[in-house]
């Protein structure tokens, strides 16, 4: 399974660090994983909380008369806060755990991006994916995230080890070949 140099449009060698992987994994989970639709879920809990608040208001906010409403109100508010503020942090934390537990993710890979597919490989792992299989093709200032295939595992490519020319060529290629799936997002702020 080899890719001839003539077919390859962009080729480079890259290694992904724990920070890029955890941020990329967070993006993947928020779009395709357990975080997908979190805004809708948070909204539902918010409206339920407002309903409970309204019911309590009719009883003059006497929670001893309606303890159930008060408990449901607290739970709904907690769920809103969880979905909006805590869930992204949890996804990033999971990404860090995955990186630390894996012997393969932190290794150096060679990438070859061709017209219809890309190949990533090293001594331990070989993966070929067609652009038509991709669900997401996300670019930030620091990395690319490509998700798709049957397993839908994210591939996070750090721009740190790429030169500027290769990064621009790859960005142009992904914009062209993955029109519907491509997104350009701002990088998250670094917490030092």
């Amino acid at each position: 399974m080899t890719v001839s140099e003539k077919k390859s449009i962009v080729s480079f060698i890259a290694k992904t660090g724990i920070r890029e992987y955890s941020e990329g994994y967070k993006l993947y989970e928020m779009r395709r994983g357990f975080g997908a639709g979190r805004e809708i879920k948070a909204s539902l809990f918010f409206f339920l909380a407002m309903g409970m608040l309204f019911i309590l208001m009719t009883e003059g906010f006497d929670i001893t008369r309606l303890p159930v409403c008060a408990v449901i109100l607290l739970i709904c508010m907690h769920m809103c806060i969880y979905y909006i503020f805590m869930m992204p942090g949890k996804a990033k934390h999971i990404g860090e755990h995955i990186y630390k537990s894996s012997e393969m993710i932190g290794k150096t890979y060679s990438y070859d991006f061709c017209r219809e597919y890309f190949v990533m490989k090293n001594k331990y792992h070989y993966l070929k994916r067609y652009y038509t299989e991709l669900n997401d093709s996300i670019e930030t200032d620091e990395f690319f995230v490509l998700t798709g295939g049957v397993e839908n595992n994210p591939v996070v490519i750090s721009k740190d080890s790429m030169n500027e020319n290769d990064a621009e060529k790859l960005s142009g290629l992904l914009r062209k070949e993955t029109i519907k799936q491509y997104r350009r997002l701002k990088s998250p702020k670094r917490n030092h």
Binding site: M1, S101, S102, E103, M104, K123, Y124, H125, Y126, L127, K128, R129, G149
Partner: peptide, 13 residues
């Protein structure tokens, strides 16, 4: 068809 993993036993979690 699309992928291959070839790892020593130490890499298994």
């Amino acid at each position: 068809e699309a992928s291959k993993v070839k790892i020593p036993f130490d890499f298994i979690y």
